[in-house]
Structures are given as C-alpha cells and as structure tokens.
Simulated scan of single mutants.
Amino acid sequence: MIRYAFGIDIGGTTVKIGLFKSNGELVEKWEIDTRKEGNGQYILGDVAQEIENKIKEKGITKNMVIGAGIGIPGPVSSDGTVLKCVNLGWGVFNVEERLGKMINIPVKAGNDANVAALGEMWQGGGNGHKNVVMVTIGTGIGGGIIINGNIVSGANGAGGEIGHIKVVKDEVEICGCGKTGCLEQYASATGIVKECKKVINNYESDSILRRYDELTAKDIFDAAKEGDKLANKLVEDLGEKLGHVFANISCVCDPEVFVIGGGVSKAGNILVNVIKKYFIKNTFHACENTEFKLAKLGNDAGIYGGVKLILNENISR
C-alpha cells in the first residue's frame, strides 16, 4: 500500500504545504496565506482544512497517511510545545496536540530552520550524510544541526541559533535578539550592507559600490567578482567571521558537511571558498576536511524536512 505524509512550513506571509509519498517523492505542493490576525488563531485551522481537502481530493484514506511534520518560526520543545512565536502572535501551547486533534493523524513539530536542515540532509545539499549543519544566510542568519539523522533542538528548542553566536565583543548596537555582537549583525544580507556603509565614505580608492543608491549584498558580491578592492575586502571580512564561527561549531558537533542556504548563498563559490579558507585556518585539525555545499531545495526545504520529521518519528515508535 502506498503511504503518504504532509510537510508543512509556516512562514510569516505564507504557509507552504506538500503532499509526499513515503519514499520522498513530492506529489503536490501549494501555499496559503498566513492569517496572523487574532494572534494567529486561524493558522492551524486553515492548515487542517487544507489537509482534509487534499485527502478528500486525492481519494486517500487516513490510514494511508503516516502523519504531518510542521516547521514553526520559533523555538519548539521536544514534546511539540511552541515556546512563544512572536512573528505569528502565538504564545505557549502544544502544536502537535492541537493540530493532531484537528486532523486525526500524527503530527510532529520542530523549529523551521532545524526542519529545513533536515530536508536538505534528506533530499538536498546534505544528501548522503547523517551529520549536517545547515546555515541560512538571508535577512537574518538561521541554522539547523543534524546529528545521526536527527535534529538537535536542545532543552529549550533553541539549538542551531547560529546567527546569535557572539563574534564582536565591544559592539554597542543591539541585535534583534536584544544582545550585542551577534553574527547576524555582520554576516546577514542586511549586516553585509551595513558593514559596507560603515567604511565606504572613508575608503580612499574608487569603488563600484559608490554607484549604487540602494546597495544590496548581491551588489557587493558582484563587485568582488569584478575585482573591486573594497568589495573584496568586505567579502574577506565576511568570510573570516563565518569561517571562524563554522570552525567553532565543527569542534562541538563535527559535521560531515556544512550546507549553506538563504538568499546570500546565491553568490555561489566566491562565498563558499572564502568561508572554507578561514574555516581551515581556524578549525581543529581533525575537522579540516569537512565538506561545504550549497543548499539545493530552496524554499521547499521546510516541507521536505517536515516529511522527514514525521517519518523519523514513525520509525522510532
């Protein structure tokens, strides 16, 4: 009998949903709006309705569905309790129990970055490995740690918060998390541009970067590829911070591969190579051969990871 599973990725704007066969084959994917009004009280009900509708549409019975795995943009404890999710307006409650009662199939929940990392390990850039660290570099910096094929979420669901590793001791500007000196402040897409603006006015040589009214991280990488000295310096500084952090992470969990995703990863090899250079310089000798790969699943990583999450749960029962 063919068995199915649902992967769900709740974002601040849309909820991505995928119907999969248990072998990982994607049958169909679609999106719905994330209704955040009323402190997000309609979100799970909307998801439940979509799942019920799809089961009916496809002529699937509930006993053919292994379950649903769901990624949440916030900390999630091992029992499925969401520990406040500010972006959705959620407080503290058990999302597995609540959604499970609505759809009457097993539900497993995790932090969205961790779940996306699980997806990349299973069907993406980390395929073929069981020990993977994924780092997403976009507007912010997220991360997910997979050891022996399982998410490391930690005691408070905060495992993999790589963007909030402290990298600058004397920073006075406050990060979005409320602390100072976090990696996210310098190495996110926003942070890369901010670092450029700090130095560009005092930079003595000419630079392509002065031509842009609305500078982006992509502009900086493009200029570096053209040989712009300021852009290359900024990329080097970025690589040094990221490489140093990755080296520290490798000494703790010794992954087989780092998978780099998010919008900034589109810079490609120029980003990977500069990170790897400083990683090798700083890491423990036994970790020097750790692989670096770009993520492959893009925005679908979360739904793939959701399915793998519920498949792992099913195997462990």
Rank of each mutant, 00 (worst) to 15 (best):
G7M: 02
G11W: 11
K21D: 02
N23S: 12
K29D: 12
I32L: 10
T34Q: 03
K36I: 15
A48L: 12
N53S: 14
N53Q: 14
G59F: 05
G74F: 05
G80Y: 10
K84D: 14
G89P: 13
G91R: 04
N94R: 09
V95H: 14
E97T: 09
K101S: 13
I105P: 03
L118Q: 03
E120P: 03
G128T: 04
G128N: 03
H129Y: 08
V133Q: 09
T136E: 06
T139N: 06
I151S: 12
V152F: 00
A155D: 04
A155Y: 02
G157I: 03
A158D: 06
A158Y: 06
K198F: 12
N201K: 13
N202V: 11
Y203E: 08
D206Y: 05
L209S: 08
A217K: 01
A217Q: 09
F221G: 04
K225G: 03
G227E: 14
D228A: 13
N232S: 04
G239W: 01
L242D: 12
C253Y: 02
E256V: 04
G268P: 11
I280L: 08
F292G: 01
F292S: 12
K293E: 14
L297N: 08
G298L: 08
G298H: 13
A301S: 15
Y304P: 13
K308I: 11
I315M: 03
